[in-house]
Write a protein that binds this DNA or RNA. Structure first.
Length: 279
DNA sequence: CCTGCTACCTGATGGC
DNA sequence: TGCCATCAGGTAGCAG
């Protein structure tokens, strides 16, 4: 699960399930999920500890323990699955016929939290503190936090010469925006993804800021209605297509001006945009 | 420092 | 039907 709104919805759903619960046992079923850390580093850090809170910044989610943290990153396809017991988890996880692929399972005093990713891109890491996790410390401003202000955003834009699309994907500048919502935000702001960030007029920077805030807010609303149901291994976010205006619409008419949507490659990813009304 | 490219995995899809 | 190429909501690591 991918971008900030989805991860935020997961964080909110996860809190009542795990906060104040103690981790009795960690099962690393597929060691690739902890690479390059060792499975034993994770188990040593987490076992016996109480989960004090569930935190999120950008697309990173982490369990704040009494001593240390466990970070979860879902990359493209990772997800959480909730099991009522370890026995139930072992009954269905990683069985040929089940299709449920659990890489790491946290056995709590009540229930089991599974980190699942059939593609094995997702990662589960342990650190002694939040400050000890380089990926988190290097994140830029979280795009749904109060710190994501127009003036801060304008300063960031002015300090870079990269194309807008690539800038938005750089998690060390602003954290949480991925391929879909960067395309969507640029379409709403009527800005060409290839424009250099430091070429924006103040009014354009404000437009982009406003577009990002509203796109992410609408996506979060969509992700919360209905909220994720971790008990269903098949759960996934529904209805996101409905709110998308430009992503994955190559050759189809622009919903604003009717001209065909273009697909180009930027930073090795697909960018969808309307070259007629995004300037 | 900054930027661009590749690797990492698996599964779905579409053309031939 | 099978085979191959391409694509996927992300990021770490490395070379220049």
């Amino acid at each position: 699960m991918p971008e900030l709104p989805e991860v935020e919805a997961v964080a909110r759903t996860l809190r009542p399930l795990v906060e104040r619960r103690r981790i009795s046992c960690v099962h690393v079923l597929h060691a690739i999920a902890t690479k390059p850390q060792s499975p034993s580093h994770l188990t040593r850090t987490a076992e016996g500890q109480r989960i004090q809170s569930v935190r999120r910044k950008g697309k990173y989610l982490w369990l704040q323990l009494e001593l240390g943290i466990v970070t979860l990153h879902f990359k493209l396809d990772g997800q959480l699955i909730w099991f009522p017991s370890a026995k139930k988890m072992f009954d269905v996880a990683n069985q040929e016929e089940s299709g449920v692929h659990v890489d790491v399972a946290f056995e709590l005093d009540k229930g089991v939290l599974g980190f699942a990713d059939g593609r094995h891109f997702g990662r589960v890491y342990a650190y002694e503190s939040e400050e000890a996790c380089p990926a988190i410390t290097q994140l830029g401003v979280d795009t749904i936090s109060p710190d994501f202000t127009v003036s801060h955003f304008a300063e960031l834009l002015a300090s870079s010469r990269r194309p807008l699309k690539e800038f938005l994907l750089d998690q060390t500048r602003v954290a949480g925006i991925g391929n879909i919502y960067s395309c969507e935000s640029l379409w709403h702001a009527r800005l060409d993804p290839r424009r250099r960030t430091n070429s924006l007029e103040p009014v354009e920077a404000r437009r982009l800021h406003k577009a990002i805030v509203s796109v992410l807010a609408r996506a979060l609303e969509c992700c919360l209605h209905p909220p994720p149901d971790f008990r269903d291994p098949e759960w996934w976010f529904q209805g996101l297509e409905k709110i998308l205006r430009v992503y994955d619409r190559g050759e189809k008419p622009c919903r604003r001006c009717g001209n065909p949507i273009k697909r180009i490659a930027q930073a090795g990813r697909s960018t969808y945009f309307c070259s007629h009304c995004q300037k």
